[in-house]
Write a protein that binds this DNA or RNA. Structure first.
Ligand SMILES: NC(=O)c1ccc[n+]([C@@H]2O[C@H](COP(=O)([O-])OP(=O)(O)OC[C@H]3O[C@@H](n4cnc5c(N)ncnc54)[C@H](O)[C@@H]3O)[C@@H](O)[C@H]2O)c1
Ligand SMILES: NC(=O)c1ccc[n+]([C@@H]2O[C@H](COP(=O)([O-])OP(=O)(O)OC[C@H]3O[C@@H](n4cnc5c(N)ncnc54)[C@H](O)[C@@H]3O)[C@@H](O)[C@H]2O)c1
Lengths: 215, 215
DNA sequence: CCATCAATGTGATAACTCTCACAGAGTTGT
DNA sequence: ACAACTCTGTGAGAGTTATCACATTGATGG
């Protein structure tokens, strides 16, 4: 795998992630090989876009034939770093945190959730399905350090997010995925992504409103 | 509110949604007025970007002063169409579906979830907190039509997503938010957004891998 | 072994999005 | 009433991302 340049569009990375899901399904459906044309139809991306996305990282297809689904999936996982094992923890075991804790696809992408934290005394001590016990937030720092956890998922209410982020950073976390509807601030060396599910719905409402106004 | 042109960047819409959350917090923290500079710091967007985003839709600030937080929030909600009431339903009341059903921020943005469906006979009939009872999927079409539901949220496993989408469309749905890791196909007149939480984590892994390789 | 064919990989180009710098509107103080 | 000042709104330009068209490559079959 060669990485020609450092300027890969963020949108490309997002698409690579969806290609994986398509490729997995294609294998189940007995397609050992697929063209960019057909893959594009599957995941609703133009064929040229797919080829361009892949060309940033190397040549993975066979001209005149297409891509080996199994091999391409492995290559993309390598590109994204999903062939590593990423020790991950969840802070805030509420409705959303519980959903994420039980989300099977995460494990398939290399993320293994090895700890869960909550501030609610009633929840602390609860053993979750995966053999993980909910720990108090006071143990965040030492557990993250001790278990060498690299990724932290924040699913606490908004007003707790900043403090939780700081505790995770103190423990030596390297990446944070924040679901709380507030932007947390962390040192520059920490990789941070804020996820806003609400904005997806808002966007839907906007598009629908546009259509309505136009007609 | 004037809409000068039709070509609003998607990124702008996404940011408008986050501005709302910031503006709400600013009001609670007793800031009746805010400059683009400070708002930018709050939601980690450059001041120029904020002004440009807003300028697509009109003039909302007072020169030399800034923006009225309360008024601006209302304006943005109007722009996004969040001042309407959006009757919404959830299909697939699993871990994620339940989290979304109980998510308070949705209601604040104008989305009122008025029905929930699941194919699991053990779940059908369960009364959820909001006074909503889980209905069988066979009732999707008639309920969507009867309750004039406009938005459908799909949180079923991937292999059920397409069929569910078709049932919702048959009932007259206008917008779909799909959380299943597969792209569903619907008629052009339906507004569709696919949400991929996995790709957010994948993206995080990619960024972290980049940093690691660089050093 | 060569001709034919299908689908990739990519440079050029078009489209889109963000950043910058500043003119000018409105406020505040004298 | 006027001057000094602050922060908005925006055109112009830089930078980024997607699309297009086609030359190129490797497979396939006679
Ligand atoms: N539920 C959703 O569908 C959804 C969607 C998008 C974003 N979010 C956001 O995700 C977060 C969690 O949502 P939820 O619906 O799961 O809420 P929830 O109330 O069900 O869960 C929050 C959990 O965080 C715990 N908590 C509170 N303070 C804490 C602290 N300081 N340290 C550790 N844990 C703490 C609570 O005990 C609770 O278990 C919220 O910020 C919400 O806005 C939720
Ligand atoms: N859990 C997460 O954190 C998460 C994150 C991102 C995406 N997703 C996706 O969201 C979807 C749901 O995830 P989950 O964790 O809630 O799974 P889940 O298994 O907890 O829930 C799925 C629910 O869908 C119901 N269902 C199955 N077939 C159905 C059908 N044909 N019609 C109606 N309902 C049906 C099931 O009975 C179940 O209640 C999956 O596609 C998953 O990939 C989940």
């Amino acid at each position: 795998m060669k990485t020609k340049e450092c300027k890969i569009p963020e949108a490309t990375i997002k698409r690579l992630s969806t290609y994986i899901n398509c490729l997995e399904r294609l294998q189940v459906e007995n397609h050992p090989v697929i063209s960019s044309e057909l893959l594009g139809e599957y995941c609703q991306v133009s064929p040229a876009q797919i080829r361009k996305d892949l060309s940033y990282f190397g040549e993975f297809g066979v001209r005149g034939v297409g891509y080996d689904t199994k091999k391409l999936e492995a290559e993309i996982k390598e590109i994204l770093g999903l062939n590593n094992n990423w020790p991950t923890c969840v802070v805030g075991v509420g409705k959303l945190g519980l959903a994420l804790l039980n989300f099977a696809l995460f494990r398939k992408h290399g993320f293994s959730i090895t700890a869960a934290f909550d501030s609610d005394p009633a929840k602390v001590g609860t053993e979750l399905s995966a053999g993980i016990t909910i720990q108090p937030t006071t143990e965040i720092e030492q557990t993250v350090t001790g278990k060498k956890i690299l990724i932290g998922i924040i699913t606490t209410p908004a007003d707790a997010a900043q403090k939780v982020a700081e505790q995770l950073v103190a423990g030596g976390i390297q990446g944070l995925l924040n679901f709380a509807p507030t932007k947390v601030k962390v040192p520059e060396e920490i990789t941070l992504r804020n996820v806003s599910i609400t904005s997806e719905l808002d966007n839907l409402a906007y598009l629908m409103t546009q259509k309505r106004r136009r007609s």
